[in-house]
Amino acid sequence: CETCDRYISGRVLEAGGKHYHPTCARCVRCHQMFTEGEEMYLTGSEVWHPICKQAAR
């Protein structure tokens, strides 16, 4: 997992080739988790909900 550096077994979320436990992938702006299939916007090592990234501009 990109966030906690632990092995992932079971469900995995992926953004930009990086992998996360579903509970570790959180938006840097709103701190909410991502749901399965939800779009993730990756900037460097930061993961955003698209609407949060747009609002931060």
Rank of each mutant, 00 (worst) to 15 (best):
C30P: 02
G10W: 00
C30V: 01
P22D: 03
C30L: 01
E14L: 06
A15H: 13
R11Y: 04
R6W: 01
A55F: 09
G10A: 02
M40E: 09
H31T: 11
Y7I: 15
F34G: 06
G16T: 01
E2V: 13
C27V: 02
Y41G: 11
H19P: 13
I51M: 10
E46F: 05
P22F: 15
C4W: 00
A15C: 14
Q54F: 14
H21Y: 01
H31G: 13
G37M: 05
T43E: 12
Y41P: 05
M33L: 11
H31L: 10
Q54G: 09
A56I: 08
E39T: 06
V12E: 12
Y20I: 05
A25E: 00
Y20W: 08
R11I: 03
T23G: 10
T23F: 03
P50A: 11
I8C: 02
G37S: 14
G10T: 03
T3D: 08
A25T: 12
P50S: 11
S9A: 11
M40C: 09
E46D: 07
I8W: 00
C24N: 02
R26G: 03
S9H: 05
K53P: 12
V28P: 14
A15D: 06
C52D: 03
Y7M: 14
H19W: 06
A15L: 15
D5V: 06
H21N: 03
C24L: 01
C27F: 03
H19V: 06
G37H: 13
R26C: 10
A25K: 15
V47H: 06
C27K: 02
P50Y: 07
E2C: 14
P22V: 09
I51T: 12
L42D: 11
Y20R: 04
R11M: 05
E39H: 03
V12S: 13
T3W: 00
V12Y: 09
K53T: 04
C24P: 00
Q32V: 10
A25Y: 14
W48F: 07
H19T: 11
E14G: 07
G44F: 04
T23W: 09
V47T: 11
M33C: 13
S45V: 07
C30Y: 00
H19I: 07
A56L: 10
M33P: 12
M33D: 07
C30S: 02
T23L: 05
H19R: 09
F34Q: 04
T43W: 04
F34M: 11
L42G: 14
L13K: 07
V28T: 14
F34H: 00
C1R: 11
P50C: 05
E46I: 04
I8S: 01
C24T: 01
A56M: 10
D5Q: 13
R6P: 00
H19S: 12
A55K: 10
E46L: 06
I51Q: 12
R29K: 12
E39K: 06
F34I: 06
E38S: 07
T43I: 07
P22T: 08
E38C: 06
T35S: 06
H31R: 11
